[in-house]
Structures are given as structure tokens and as C-alpha cells.
């Protein structure tokens, strides 16, 4: 095995980094959607001004 024939030196920072990687904490920030009632009017406006669905061209 390659690793058995390669001198490997471990620094204290390596051990610290390994310990940190093994702990796997939860995400610090939540990405949960928040309730935003003021967005309702904006969404309605977008729905009204959005272009119509394209129609299938006839005669083909």
C-alpha cells in the first residue's frame, strides 16, 4: 500500500482539522422560508404582467 511506504507526518493542526471534520455540526444559519405578506402584492403584479403562454403555430 502506498501509504505504508510513504513517511507521513501529522501536525497538531491536522489532528484539530480532523476532529472538526468528524463533529459535523448543524448548519449555522437557517435557510427556512420566512413569511412575507408584503410580497403578495408583488407576486400578484408579476402574475398580471407576465406574458401569455406561447401557442402552437398553426398550419404545421
Amino acid at each position: 500500500m502506498l501509504a505504508q511506504h510513504t513517511p507521513l507526518l501529522v501536525a497538531p493542526t491536522d489532528t484539530t482539522a480532523l476532529g472538526t471534520a468528524m463533529v459535523e455540526p448543524e448548519a449555522v444559519l437557517s435557510d427556512a422560508p420566512t413569511y412575507a405578506p408584503e410580497a403578495a402584492g408583488f407576486l400578484l403584479l408579476l402574475a398580471l404582467v407576465s406574458p401569455k403562454e406561447p401557442k402552437e403555430p398553426k398550419g404545421k
Binding site: L2, A3, T6, L8, V10, D14, A17, L18
Partner: peptide
């Protein structure tokens, strides 16, 4: 990087 590979095993 064998050292990283061996660390990954532990992770």
C-alpha cells in the same frame, strides 16, 4: 495525498 485519504477514512 495518503494522509488526507487516511483522515477521510476517519471522517
Amino acid at each position: 495525498d495518503p494522509k488526507a485519504a487516511l483522515a477521510a477514512i476517519r471522517v
